[in-house]
C-alpha cells in the first residue's frame, strides 16, 4: 500500500474513534434514562427494597454514570466485553455463539438483493420504455410496500410448509442444514433491500448512459455487453457501492426482524431479548458491535470507491 493510501486509511480510522466514543456514551446515558430496573428484574418479585439495592450494588449500577462509562471503556480496551447480568455468561461467548447467524444472514441478503437488483436496474436503465421495464418498476413498488415480517411469514408458509423442501425456521446443525435454513431468511431480507438498490442503480446507470463518453463509445460502434461492462458499469459502480454500504447498515437492522420471524439465534434476536430484560452489558456490547460493523462497512466502501475512481487523490 502506498504512503498516500495508508494515510487515507489511518485518517478514516482516526475519524471513527470519536464516533465510537459518542456511540458508547449515548448508549450508557440512554440506558440510565430507560424505565425498568435491571436489579429488580434479577432480584425477582419477592425481593425487598433492600435486596434490590444489594443487587444494584453488586451490578455496579449505583455508581456514577461517568464511572460506569469509564469502567466500561477500560474493560473494552482490554478486550473484555463484560458478562451478561442475566445469565452470567461472558458476552464474548454470547457474541461468538450468535454472530455467525447474523453474518450468514447479511451476506445472504446482500447476495440476493444484488443478484435481483442488477438485472432489474439494467433493464430499467437500458430499456426504460419497454413493457418489461414498466412491469419491473411496478413489481418493485409492490415489494417495497411489503413488510419483511409478512414476506417472511408468507415465504415460510408457501415455500417451506407448503413443499417441505426448506425448514420453516431455526439455524440447523451442519453446513448443509444451515445453507437450507438461510435461503428463506436471505430471500426475505434481500427482497426488502432490493427495490431501493435497483432503483438507485437504474438512476445511476441512466445518468451514465447520457454521459459524453458513452455517446462517443456508441458512435464508435460499441454496443451491447461491451458497452455495459466497459463504459456503464465501471462508472455506475462507485455510487452503487456507496448505496450498497448504506443498504448493508439497513440490512443489519432488518436482520433483527428477520431473525425473530424465522427464529434465528443471531445478534439481532439477542439484542431484543437483552433490551427487554434490561441486560445492559449485553445491550452495550451489541450496540458497539453493530456500530463497528456499520463503520467498517462504510470504510470498506469508501476504500473501494477510491480504488475504482481514478480521480481519487488519497487525501
Amino acid at each position: 500500500m502506498s504512503a498516500g493510501r495508508l494515510r487515507f486509511v489511518v485518517g478514516r480510522l482516526a475519524q471513527v474513534l470519536p464516533v465510537l466514543a459518542a456511540l458508547l456514551l449515548i448508549v450508557v446515558l440512554l440506558q440510565q434514562m430507560m424505565p425498568g430496573d435491571p436489579a429488580r428484574v434479577i432480584a425477582g418479585p419477592r425481593a425487598t427494597a433492600e435486596q434490590v439495592v444489594q443487587v444494584r450494588h453488586e451490578l455496579g449500577l449505583d455508581r456514577p454514570v461517568f464511572e460506569q462509562f469509564g469502567r466500561h471503556v477500560w474493560n473494552l480496551l482490554q478486550g473484555d466485553l463484560g458478562t451478561s447480568n442475566r445469565t452470567g455468561i461472558p458476552i464474548t461467548a454470547i457474541v461468538g455463539d450468535r454472530i455467525g447467524v447474523t453474518v450468514w444472514l447479511l451476506f445472504g441478503g446482500l447476495l440476493v438483493s444484488t443478484l435481483l437488483a442488477t438485472p432489474a436496474a439494467l433493464l430499467m436503465a437500458l430499456r426504460p420504455r419497454s413493457r418489461s421495464a414498466r412491469m419491473c418498476s411496478r413489481a418493485l413498488t409492490i415489494i417495497i410496500n411489503c413488510p419483511p415480517f409478512w414476506v417472511g411469514l408468507m415465504l415460510a408458509s408457501v415455500l417451506a410448509l407448503g413443499t417441505g423442501w426448506l425448514p420453516v425456521g431455526g439455524f440447523g446443525v451442519d453446513f448443509g442444514d444451515r445453507v437450507r435454513s438461510m435461503i428463506l431468511p436471505s430471500l426475505t431480507i434481500g427482497l426488502a433491500a432490493m427495490p431501493l438498490l435497483a432503483r438507485s442503480a437504474a438512476a445511476s446507470l441512466s445518468q451514465v448512459l447520457t454521459a459524453d463518453h458513452v455517446t462517443t463509445a456508441r458512435s464508435l460502434g460499441v454496443s451491447g455487453w461491451p458497452l455495459v461492462r466497459r463504459h456503464l458499469l465501471r462508472n455506475a459502480l462507485p455510487p452503487a457501492i456507496t448505496l450498497l454500504a448504506i443498504q448493508a447498515a439497513a440490512l443489519l437492522f432488518g436482520a433483527v426482524i428477520v431473525e425473530q420471524t424465522f427464529g434465528l439465534p443471531g445478534l439481532g434476536a439477542e439484542m431484543i431479548t437483552a433490551a427487554s430484560q434490561r441486560d445492559f452489558p449485553v445491550v452495550q456490547a451489541l450496540t458497539l458491535i453493530f456500530g463497528l460493523a456499520i463503520i467498517a462497512i462504510n470504510l470498506l466502501a469508501d476504500l473501494a470507491v477510491a480504488l475504482l475512481d481514478p480521480r481519487t487523490t488519497w487525501r
Binding site: S157, L161, G164, V168, G169, G170, Q260, F262
Partner: peptide, 18 residues
C-alpha cells in the same frame, strides 16, 4: 427444548413437524 418467541414461527415449526 427450542426457545422460539414468535408465536407464528412456533406454529410453523409445529406444523412442519420440526
Amino acid at each position: 427444548y427450542d426457545v422460539v418467541t414468535d408465536p407464528n414461527q412456533q406454529m410453523l415449526r409445529y406444523q412442519s413437524r420440526q
